[in-house]
Structure formats: structure tokens, C-alpha cells
Amino acid sequence: MSYVESTEVFGAESSGTERRADVPAAFPRWLVWAVWAALAVPSYFIGMYALRYLFMGPEGVGALNSVYEMLNMTSFNDFVAEQLPKFKDHPTLLYFHAAGMGTALAIGAFQFVPAIRRRWFRVHQSIGVVYMAAALIGSLAGGIFAIVLPAEPGMAAVVAIVGVATTTFCFTAMGLLRLIQGDFSHHGEWMIRSFSQTLSGTTLRVMIIGMDYAGLPWHENYMIALWMCWVPNLVVAEIVIQYRRARRNGEPFFGPSPRALGTVQ
């Protein structure tokens, strides 16, 4: 794989010149796509499955029982029983949250496919408009939901849910603002941050399944999962952003840049 191909996969600009020794090396293309698929495929199905609430109403939460029973996770039944009354109390918030975040989770990963941006830019724009609208609406509804119907673990859980809702909303709003300003480089960075928070919907469910199979009482540790499903995502997003900046600017990923060193007397 050429340097130019690797750079395009990560969304960085390429000058076509030979890479310096201190510039971070590109990851193999197969690895990039493997990571993308590992995030995109489960996110797509989880997001699409969340849209069932639009057709089934609050009772759609009961459909989770059959899914988790197939995974031999019968302990999830108690959680479903606790959520159903809350969903019935505020169905409108449920619809907006499920429709918004479900849509954003299902389509968000496709915004980072270079071929779509290069060859079908109108498709990229259309997906982006839908994603931003869905993420803004879904995160706002989710944050209100957490305050109106607090999660069982208590205030720490409420803060965690409001936290991820706030970061998702603010990061998406910043991405939209940068797009309007024509600052496409920073627009891309804010959208990476936004999708990292949208992915909390995937990482939360993966953590719940992992806890159950590990024999951990995940229901009692739900608060831990609520924090761990989005804070590490944000850290990884910042690492990816710094990596892209280093490649774009021809600077080392770790340590000061050659330009910074040149200013030291």
C-alpha cells in the first residue's frame, strides 16, 4: 500500500512527496478497514434495531429479552421490567431519542469512508446532514430523558448519561458550525469526536455482554458501564485526531515538532 493510499484512508491530506523518517507511519490498509468494520457493522445493526420503538412503542423494550436470551443472558429480563414503566411515562422522549441516536449510530461510520467523499460527494453531504440532525435531536432527547427518568444507579449514572448526551450535542454542533464556516479540516475533527460519543451506544452493549459472559454482575455495575462506554471513546478520538494532524503536517506523532525545536535558542 502506498503512502498516499494510507493517508487518504485516515482522511489526511497528502502532498505526494516522500515521507520523512519522523512522520508517523501509515497503518496497513487492511487493518484500517478491519477496525472500521468492527465499529460500523455492529453499530449499524444496533442503530437499526433501535428504530423498532417507532413501530412498537415503549413495548419495544421487551423485544430485547429475546435477543439477550439467544445470547444466554437471562439476567437482562429484570432490567427490561424496570425500563418499561419509564418508557411508557414519556413515549415522546423515547421516540426522539431512539430515532435520532439509532439513525446516527447506523449511518455515522459511512461518513469516514474516503471513497464516498471522493467519488460520491453528494452522498457524503446527504449522509452528513441526516447524521448531524439525528445526533442533535437524539442526544438532546437522551439528556432530557436521563434527568426526567433517572437511571437506577443514582445521580452518578444521571451525570454519566447527561455527560455523553452533552458531548454528543456540542461536538456535533461544533462540526456543523465549522462546516458552515468552510473550515473542513476542523469540521472533520469535530465529527470524529461526535461519532466517538455516538459509538457509546455500541460500546455500552458490548460491555454489558462482556460483563455477563465474564460472570460479573453487570446489572450492579451498570453505572461503571455508563461511564466506560463513552469516556475512553473520547480519549481514542483525540489520539486519532492528533495522529491525523501529525501526518497532515509532516510532524512526529510523539514529541515536539521540528518547527518547535527550531524556535528553542
Rank of each mutant, 00 (worst) to 15 (best):
S2Q: 04
E5S: 09
E8P: 01
E8W: 07
F10N: 06
F10D: 07
E13L: 11
T17P: 04
R19F: 09
R20V: 11
P24H: 04
A26M: 15
A26E: 12
W30G: 08
W30E: 08
L31H: 09
V32P: 02
V35G: 03
V35K: 03
S43F: 00
F45M: 07
I46H: 05
M48K: 14
F55Q: 14
V61E: 12
S66Y: 10
S66H: 15
V67K: 09
V67M: 11
V67T: 14
Y68V: 09
N72Q: 15
N72I: 12
N72A: 12
N72L: 13
S75F: 00
F76A: 14
F76H: 11
F76I: 13
F76C: 05
D78M: 14
A81P: 06
E82V: 09
K86S: 09
F87M: 12
K88E: 12
H90T: 10
T92K: 13
T92V: 14
A106M: 03
A109N: 05
A109H: 07
F110K: 08
F112E: 02
A115L: 15
R118M: 04
R119I: 08
V123Q: 04
S126K: 10
V129D: 01
V129R: 15
V130S: 00
A133E: 00
L136P: 05
G138T: 04
A141G: 06
V148A: 01
P150M: 09
G154Q: 05
M155E: 03
V164R: 15
T168M: 12
A173C: 04
G175F: 00
L176A: 13
L176K: 08
L177F: 07
D183W: 08
S194A: 15
S194Q: 02
S196H: 02
T198C: 13
S200R: 05
T202V: 11
R205I: 10
M207G: 07
M207A: 11
I208N: 10
A214W: 10
A214Q: 14
W218S: 10
H219W: 08
E220I: 10
E220H: 14
Y222L: 15
M223P: 07
I224N: 11
A225D: 04
W230I: 09
L234T: 15
Q242N: 12
Y243I: 09
G250Y: 00
G250V: 06
G250R: 00
P252H: 05
F254P: 03
G255K: 05
G255R: 04
G255H: 04
S257Y: 00
R259N: 14
A260N: 13
A260L: 10
